[in-house]
């Protein structure tokens, strides 16, 4: 219902329709959905939509959600300025 109007990933504005179409076309995992559509790849690091994407993938593929995290986390897990990463203190709070 209203898949083309339902944004799932807010950061990258990826819709439910795009995600479901991608899963159906490539019968793929959450990780592949992310790489193909950018869903879960935005500023928040997928924190907001990752659980939803896992559910959509599981429901569309008719498989249970796997134990391994399909959408991996990589450091830095918060967007950081180069100064912070370099050990300085000018930072996003």
């Amino acid at each position: 219902m209203a898949g083309e109007k339902t944004i799932v990933c807010r950061c990258e504005e990826v819709t439910l329709e795009t995600i479901v179409d991608t899963i159906e076309q490539y019968s793929c995992s959450s990780r592949e959905v992310k790489l193909r559509t950018r869903a879960g790849m935005g500023y928040c690091g997928g924190r907001t939509c990752r659980n939803v994407i896992d559910r959509i993938v599981a429901a569309t593929n008719g498989e249970p959600i796997k134990d391994e995290l399909q959408l991996s986390y990589r450091s830095p897990i918060r967007p950081a300025t180069f100064e912070v990463l370099g050990g300085g203190h000018e930072n996003e709070s």
Partner: peptide, 15 residues
């Protein structure tokens, strides 16, 4: 968690 409310402070930092 969601970073939707990020704004610029003192024309310098994004928070």
């Amino acid at each position: 968690h969601c970073y939707e409310c990020r704004v610029k402070v003192e024309d310098r930092k994004v928070v």
